[in-house]
Write a protein that binds this DNA or RNA. Structure first.
Lengths: 214, 214
DNA sequence: TTAGTTCTAGTCAATTTGACTATAACTACT
DNA sequence: AGTAGTTATAGTCAAATTGACTAGAACTAA
């Protein structure tokens, strides 16, 4: 499952979006579902996740991590299925390249209908984990491009945590993390003082090899 | 994989121990390995983990949670294997009941030899996660019995985090968490002032249904 | 030139943390 | 009976962090 930031239709502020695919066969034919597919004998779990993502949506995420293995008995009405779910964060530029069609569409993460299988529960869990990781680790930057302003980082936090944060205090905290690097560039074009651009210099977090944050 | 506290041979202070089983067939015949076994069609992942644990060691843990799904291509030399690993914490009384035999034995978590498959890496990851959970959540209590002293809780933290903690400050923090309940009982028998006994009233944390701590 | 906007640095009190001191309450030994 | 040894427990105090807020800086639009 993939998270990306897109501007909300009304406010224009960034919000969380998820691409879903329409099922073209039973069970749940015609309903929306998370992209996915089988694991072959010659690929690792992560490779399989990447490949399935690429095939269904064309996306190549910058952040990909195992979410959870779901293996309840009645997840599918026809057969026993164990799904090892991965979750990804993609940057806006990547997300814009995603193939969208009759059977692939982006939805707001907080406004989903009933999905196939137990996919609503999976998304709920992924959202919970995203919020959790956000509170501690430095994961928000994978939803942004290479250069960003501190206000953009704050908007990511506000979108995911769904509450407003004090700009001055937030800036103080972010500037205290060593992985954030100040650049000499400024973002022009706003109708106000141009903000400085920053960069994230930390490494991703590919469980369980790269263990940076809880 | 199972964690339990046992007194160290020399210092007598509690340390982390893990039960391992000896492999009785190839590959890695004769080497020590994590207990485990196949998933059947009629049981959930968690049920399968419980059952395998019961069959190999006789243990019925009070805390059981999914760790990670390992699916690298070359984990086993003979065939492709995907292992959905669970980890458990057992209380000392439970751990004492574990069947120990020629082919099942407890080892200190920090003094393991080379194990079969990628099991050393799995244990490293589990240890990392245990330390992480300990730092935030309230998980240490599942390694203790129903009643415990604050010094015992501190010893658990010291054993897992492998560093000493200030008794007074630690006690202040633990007493501030609402899930810790003071009882009217005291632990007698020490050669010093008898410490008060406490209880843990929080719920376990069975991912992803019960989401209490990161 | 002025109003409107966000960026950015800073102040200050409240809270939390880390290091430490002192007393309480028991056992073991003389 | 008295005293030394041990851990339990409460408390103090400075340092560090956090939350709420103020004010000037730097741009655009009118």
């Amino acid at each position: 499952m993939i998270f990306a930031l897109r501007p909300s239709e009304r406010s224009g502020r960034p919000t969380l979006w998820i691409p879903l695919v329409r099922r073209i066969r039973e069970p749940f034919k015609g309903m929306w579902a998370l992209p996915g597919g089988p694991l072959t004998h010659s690929e690792s779990l992560q490779d399989a996740a990447s490949r399935n993502l690429q095939e269904t949506t064309g996306l190549a995420p910058s952040y990909l991590e195992q979410l959870y293995a779901f293996g309840g008995l009645h997840r599918s009405p026809t057969q026993r299925v164990v799904s090892i779910v991965y979750w990804a964060l993609v940057q806006p530029t990547e997300a814009a390249l995603a193939d969208e069609s009759e059977n692939v569409r982006w939805f707001r993460a907080d406004r989903l209908g009933g999905l196939a299988f137990d996919h609503n529960a999976i998304i709920d869990y992924a959202l919970w984990r995203l919020r959790n990781k956000m509170a501690y680790g430095s994961i928000a930057y994978h939803l942004l491009g290479e250069y960003f302003t501190l206000a953009q980082v704050r908007e990511v936090y506000e979108a995911v945590l769904d509450r407003e944060l004090d700009p001055a205090n937030f800036r103080r905290q972010v500037k205290a993390t060593p992985e954030i690097e100040e650049t000499d560039q400024y973002l022009q074009g706003g109708k106000h003082r141009p903000p400085r651009l920053y960069r994230f210099t930390g490494r991703p977090g590919l469980d369980p090899d790269n263990r940076s944050t809880p």
